[in-house]
Nucleic acid binder design. Sequence first.
DNA 1: TTAGGGGTTTCGGTTTGCCTAAATATTTAC
DNA 2: GTAAATATTTAGGCAAACCGAAACCCCTAA
Lengths: 220, 220
Amino acid sequence: MKQSTPAAEDYLKTIYGHTEWQPEPITPSVLAARLGIAPSSVTEMVKKLAASGLLRHVPYGPLTLTPAGLLAATAVVRRHRLIETWLVRDMGYHWDEVHEEAEILEHSISDRLLDAMDARLDRPAHDPHGDPIPAADGSVAREPAILLAQATAGHSGRVLRISDRDSAILRDLAADSIGPGSALTVIEPPGTTNLLCVRLPDGQIRQLSPAAAGLIWVSA
Amino acid sequence: MKQSTPAAEDYLKTIYGHTEWQPEPITPSVLAARLGIAPSSVTEMVKKLAASGLLRHVPYGPLTLTPAGLLAATAVVRRHRLIETWLVRDMGYHWDEVHEEAEILEHSISDRLLDAMDARLDRPAHDPHGDPIPAADGSVAREPAILLAQATAGHSGRVLRISDRDSAILRDLAADSIGPGSALTVIEPPGTTNLLCVRLPDGQIRQLSPAAAGLIWVSA
DNA sequence: TTAGGGGTTTCGGTTTGCCTAAATATTTAC
DNA sequence: GTAAATATTTAGGCAAACCGAAACCCCTAA
Ligand SMILES: [Fe+2]
Ligand SMILES: [Fe+2]
Ligand SMILES: [Fe+2]
Ligand SMILES: [Fe+2]
């Protein structure tokens, strides 16, 4: 039961993140790509995490979190998302600027300070990108969502979350007044051009790149 | 010119801290004791820091910061003290609880976030223990101070700073209403008992242990 | 059904930062 | 002025995380 390191926390968080919006468990090579490290490094760490009882892994198979691993992972995700929320609400950051800072602070902040933030922010349920903030007990309130890129023409819904993977896209979307909570309707499927068109409540039309549509999740 | 690590930052900060209130440069063994690591580890890191131009060191001699090292050290001290101030002013911490948390966060916070804190706190000049917060350019506004343990009977002054090394003593002092800014007069030198007596402005008398008197600095 | 080919693991190596034990330099004490 | 005590450095090791190259497993497609 030794205290987990920043590296281990990032592994767990990334494994968790992969299954948060889709069911297939992650494979070592995908995990390596997401973390930006070599596959052989993943093999090593996976062995350690499995030995600590945080991960299930049969050689050459996919990676799944144990209950203990899931709790550790959601704890990191909770820290990450609360920090992002704090940065936006208290410290004057924009939602496209918070991810990198949170990526570091999530490994440094104490439980005491985290709870002080949580209280100060009034126990927020979602981070600036619309992602649910796990409770201290690891439970997550997740609404069913579909990827905008896979929505059919005529689909109407609210934007539930936008992945913070690409901050340039977040900036573009903000400039287009699209963010978590925005209502929109798909008015045209990817036709000859591969842009996706949506209509905003005020009647305005926006064209979204496939890259952007692949990061936006809307209510079903 | 590579980015300095948390370990290197702690070495520089501790070397700086040793000469902040007294002139003698620090020796490797004292540095090792302060950092809680083995002397041989200090030898190694000192070689690296000297090679990076942050430290001056002749074998078997004391350690002194170069101008570059001083700048790096005050940058860490600035981060540490601003974080402590933020924890007290914004996050509901008491002054005896902030040091450990700041010890970690000082290595994680970005310049961007540090400046946001600084602005939010209105560019504070002192941390919760009375220590001056270095400016971004490394300059420090330090008032001359003498250790209470070395003050003569009759000496009157204001408490300028109290070292945050021992949080139990900080709690005791707070319970005795003694903190940075308190006015006091030494009314009795360490006599048969080794306690130091001081009178507060309201006439109340406090007896201080030698350990406490060795952490309190008063105006000259 | 067997040969690729891609994903995974093993192996040996690197860096950082720490350790203990032993050697060496310096200071102090007689 | 030398001998003991103390301070510092050297030498050899270890653990955490990473790497690239090579071996290995597994699945598929000819
Ligand atoms: Fe994020
Ligand atoms: Fe992280
Ligand atoms: Fe402190
Ligand atoms: Fe530190």
